[in-house]
């Protein structure tokens, strides 16, 4: 009987920090752009027959979340738009020009979350303000939690994917690629290392 009591006290003493950890405030993460474990890819229809895909190579950001309180999570990302890369020097030059991204005038794009809706089952929607080509508009990203845990090198990581889309015209992009190519789809992979 005494033994059981001791065991109960000991086990609850050992388990207690785990419950405390679970109810603690959300942890902060820096997006692992240093190790390139994060991607901002875009996809635009080409003539309605196919797609052009590309990415922004240079960006940075951080996020804060707790898997049990997803609606309190937040994320900020800054993108250097002149790092646009569609694997074609002439097209990238055109993308940087005032016809598209106007990178000389607007070198930065950013996304700042304003609220997160937990949809359950690891799915959630991140609402935020997206600033692109000098225009700021609300944008919702459909996100999925992929996983979190210790990495083999002594750190702690968490990762998500996200998708969203917007009309180029809404962000003042001048070039008209035709009705089939009016929208940009964004595919995001965000892996963070706990600070």
């Amino acid at each position: 009987m005494k033994k059981h009591l001791i065991a109960a006290v000991m086990s609850s003493a050992m388990l207690a920090p785990m419950f405390v950890a679970n109810t603690a405030s959300a942890a902060d993460y820096v997006i692992d752009t240093q190790g390139a474990h994060a991607f901002i890819q875009f996809k635009v229809s080409h003539l309605g027959y196919s797609f052009v895909m590309g990415r922004f190579n240079d960006f940075s950001g951080d996020f804060s979340f707790d898997a049990s309180k997803m609606d309190q999570a937040s994320i900020n990302v800054d993108i250097n738009t002149d790092s646009v890369d569609s694997n074609h020097a002439e097209r990238d030059k055109h993308l940087r020009s005032p016809d598209f991204l106007n990178t000389a005038k607007f070198p930065k794009a950013s996304f700042k979350s304003t609220s997160v809706e937990d949809k359950g089952d690891g799915k959630f929607v991140v609402n935020g303000d997206f600033t692109f080509n000098g225009v700021t508009k609300p944008l919702a990203i459909d996100a999925v939690m992929i996983g979190e845990g210790d990495d083999p090198w002594g750190g702690y990581r968490a990762g998500f994917t996200g998708t969203t889309h917007f009309a180029m015209k809404d962000y003042g992009i001048k070039m008209d690629l035709g009705p089939a190519s009016a929208n940009v789809e964004l595919e995001l992979v965000v892996e963070g290392i706990k600070k």
Partner: peptide, 8 residues
């Protein structure tokens, strides 16, 4: 130099 910057 414009057209061949990507190795094409």
């Amino acid at each position: 130099l414009i057209s061949t910057a990507d190795g094409r």
